[in-house]
Design a protein around this nucleic acid. Sequence first.
DNA 1: GTGTTTATCGTCAGGCAGACGACTATGATC
DNA 2: GATCATAGTCGTCTGCCTGACGATAAACAC
Lengths: 252, 252
Amino acid sequence: MPYDPSAFPPFAVTVDLVVLTVRRHALCALAVRRGEPPFQGRWALPGGFVRADEDLAQAAARELAEETGLRVHDPAVPAQDNGAHLEQLATYGDPGRDPRMRVVSVAHLALAPDLPAPRAGGDASNARWAPVGELLQQGGYGRDGEAAAPLAFDHAQILSDGVERARSKIEYSSLATAFCPPEFTVGELRRVYEAVWGVGLDPRNFHRKVTGTPGFLVPTGGTTTRQGGRPAQLFRAGGATLLNPPMLRPEV
Amino acid sequence: MPYDPSAFPPFAVTVDLVVLTVRRHALCALAVRRGEPPFQGRWALPGGFVRADEDLAQAAARELAEETGLRVHDPAVPAQDNGAHLEQLATYGDPGRDPRMRVVSVAHLALAPDLPAPRAGGDASNARWAPVGELLQQGGYGRDGEAAAPLAFDHAQILSDGVERARSKIEYSSLATAFCPPEFTVGELRRVYEAVWGVGLDPRNFHRKVTGTPGFLVPTGGTTTRQGGRPAQLFRAGGATLLNPPMLRPEV
DNA sequence: GTGTTTATCGTCAGGCAGACGACTATGATC
DNA sequence: GATCATAGTCGTCTGCCTGACGATAAACAC
């Protein structure tokens, strides 16, 4: 059959972002408050339309920068490590997921170190870091009396998928370092695993595992004592991106 | 900002399929010959436009049925196991990936047992199972003198991503059984792993691993001798979908 | 029967993870 | 300044799993 522009229905294509970070020993996601219908006043994941001349990854990186000021870490430049990790997550295209029109959303997952404060177009009250358990639970009230209404659209599903991706991916990759500042201690990295998995890990076995895996961590020579207690060695993420054998997640 | 239909550019949304199977000890993918420009006469992955009232998974299942006659195996009905496995792979939306217009393609991965013969709208000469190495290699000639021109569009990238997904996913899941008929022997399952990974596995260790993992394989009681040699026990896939600890892929 | 092929069971050594003891180096408290 | 609490780091031991590989079993071809 020849090419016929009327043979296919037009879609709007958006990118939605699951931006995760670890704050106060809890896995948190970035949520923005919707200022317009539908779901006006409800919390949602940040996102926006893909522009006509833009790649999907570019659109996601642009939205991330607009919402958080974060630049994306370019894997081709391992030296400059002060950016977030960004990867495509999955695509959601249910008819009716947006009541206005047919929207296909390409969700992306971003992992970032702990940040000072979110900004959404300069309006801080319309963006916040919230523990993922709080965003996903139905009913009840959040920490600061915020009514825990479900996220807008199908964003609870998207967030849930993003969290699951992060939880499984830190098992077999060095992705957990994306939650850490450029230099970090073994204990800080362990607390990332504990927050993301929601479990406790043995500090001694964890230390043996991460320092014994070649190429995973590179000591920088410095030490720090910002956690109290004996000063800890500082490390940077090594070149190894795959962790083999993987870090084992406890059975719960 | 209020809702403004002119604020976003229209996209065409398609689903493309990476349909994998194991034939004659080789991992093969379904390819269809393009009958119209662009890339007329070249091989491509099967796919098509998503309809206006269709979910992405529905569209992928419909395309799969149209191209192969396969129904999709519904995970909610584990008893009836005569369908293919289908999952979303990734989404490709480079501007310029289709010279006609802006097309976002949601690629899906399908795994099927060995099938008699492909059919593409009843025309067998326009569809074939080809070893993935043949489809991905640049230049040279395929087995039957077919010029090994690169796949159309960015389909080489999509196929490559799909193969990589399949290779890694059979490590930690029971997905390899999707390449097998409803009842199969340990040896047949091992040959699936060998074909997908392109390695040789020790039959004795493999047998110990798969029969020793609870819930992975369920003996049906029957035996078969279709491979020659001593009759082998027949199994069905057990309820366990996750393989823990995973099957280890040799270092090459 | 003999040889070939495939399936299945066993044995053994090495590696890794979980459990946990011991020691070190800092800041806080009395 | 001594003591305590906290966190980091190094070891040890045991059990499980894997890779390598020997041995046996049950079919078919000749």
